[in-house]
Structure formats: C-alpha cells, structure tokens
C-alpha cells in the first residue's frame, strides 16, 4: 500500500494501481474515453490528464494520463487544476473538429464550455473517436480481426486491406463495446452482418431462437473446451431442461419418503 494526496485528500492505494482507478474510487469524475475495464490502458484520448507533483519536486509539476500512471507514495494529484482544465478543453476542441455530431463528445465539450470547435471540421466527420477500444477488445479475445489504419485525418478502424476480415468470428464485441455505437451490424433472422461479412447464427433446436455464430461457437469449443452441443440450445430451453430434471428428482424423492 502507498499513500498519496488527491485533490487535497490523503488516500491509500495498491502499489502500482493506476491513478484513474483511485480517482474513480473517490467518486471524482474525470473524462476517460479510451478506458475500458476489459483491456489494458492505452493512453490514447489523453482526456484523463491530471497534474502531479511531490513535496520534494521543488514546485515542479508534470501532466500525465491517469489511466497509465501508477500510484506512488507521497504523490500529490490535482484532477481539476486550472491548467488541467485548459488542456482538457483544448483536446475537446480538437475532438469536436473530428466528431462534431457525436453526442458523447458534444456533451463533454459542453461541460467544458464548448459548443463549437475553433478548428476547421474534418471533411467527412463520423462518430469514431479513435479510442481503440474495439481493436483492443478484439485482440484481447484472441481474434485480432480489425486494426487502426492510416495517420492524421484518414485514421480509422478497419479490417486488413479494407476487405471482409477473415479472422472475425462475428461475436459483436467490438460493436457492443464501442462507446459511440459507430460500428454497424445487422441481425436478421439467423444471419448476422458485420464488417462486410455474413455469418450464420446457430439456432436452438427447441425454441428456434438464434444463439451465437457457428464460427464463434467453434472457437469456444476448440479453445475453451466447451461442448459444441451447448451452443445449440438457448438459455430458455436450457432452463426448461434444468426445471424438468429438478422436477423429476422432486417427484422421485417425495415418492421415496412416502413409501
């Protein structure tokens, strides 16, 4: 354990624990757009920037991303100093130039007194904030089907060569984790479309309801040792099976008792 000061309060933290986690535990609201609990921190959006110093630093201050900076003994952190707010506001000014129509960005910018960017809006704005959560989640799951490509204005998330990604299993984790719902997908009946690919969803033999894609099920049985039949029955039908088993045991044991 180490002890440090955040916004004037002394707090204890695990050694090496990232500042953002400690700040959040204190109930302090710091914007953190590229942070997701399922993946390692990335330091991409820089909005979680905080001011740090130490008694021994002779008044010298540094600005670091809280999601990547580990808690240290005697650290003095300010999450909302004048300079921090100024930095965050200019970052949001840039975000607004890239994502002028994105509610998440509009809201954060408005909280910092911005309604319009002072920069020129990019030619074809979209809702991707380049947080990299989708690509990191896909990597973490072991598929690595999509990645960040190009630099500057043309930077975007895309499958290799912009073609239907061969390693994608259609799990939808990227789309579900995207904070702005930028990644489009479609589920119609037992067909799923994402990233220009079409997948077939397995169907429950009893209810006719879709479960997960054939490819995802095959991956899970191969790497996680789960029988493939499990995926061919949906949750509702599985619960019915359990109820029926428990019912039969009940009938049997009540009978035995009254014998």
């Amino acid at each position: 354990m180490v002890s440090l000061t955040i916004n004037g309060k002394v707090v204890r933290a695990e050694e090496g624990e990232y500042l953002l986690a400690v700040i959040r535990r204190m109930g302090i609201d710091v914007p953190a757009l590229c942070d997701h609990a399922a993946v390692e921190p990335y330091g991409g959006c820089r909005l979680c920037m905080v001011e740090i110093t130490k008694e021994s630093w002779d008044g010298w201050k540094n600005y670091v991303t809280a999601c990547l900076y580990p808690a240290e003994q005697d650290l003095i952190v300010n999450t909302h100093s004048e300079k921090v707010i100024e930095l965050r506001t200019s970052l949001l000014d840039l975000f607004l130039a890239r994502n002028p129509e994105t509610p998440l960005i509009q809201k954060l910018a408005a909280d910092h007194g911005l309604t319009k960017t002072s920069f020129e809006v990019v030619p074809e704005p979209n809702d991707c904030i380049l947080c990299g959560i989708c690509t990191r989640v896909c990597d973490e799951m072991g598929f690595a089907a999509i990645s960040m490509v190009n630099r500057g204005h043309g930077r975007e998330v895309a499958p290799p060569l912009n073609e239907a990604p061969p390693d994608c299993v259609g799990c939808l984790a990227c789309a579900q984790a995207c904070p702005t719902n930028y990644i489009k997908f479609e589920d119609i009946g037992t067909t799923r479309k994402i990233w220009g690919r079409e997948f077939e969803l397995l169907t429950c033999e009893k209810t006719g309801r879709p479960t997960i894609t054939r490819e995802f099920a095959a991956f899970l049985s191969k790497h996680r040792d789960i029988p493939e039949e499990y995926f061919k029955v949906n949750d509702e039908a599985h619960r019915d099976e359990l109820a029926s088993t428990m019912g039969r045991i009940t009938r049997w044991s009540v009978q035995e008792e009254t014998k």
Binding site: A38, Y230, N234
Partner: peptide
C-alpha cells in the same frame, strides 16, 4: 463486452 458467449 456483451459477446453473449456465456449465455450460449
């Protein structure tokens, strides 16, 4: 990340 694997 709501991949629904556990549900299945």
């Amino acid at each position: 990340v709501r991949c629904m694997a556990c549900i299945a």
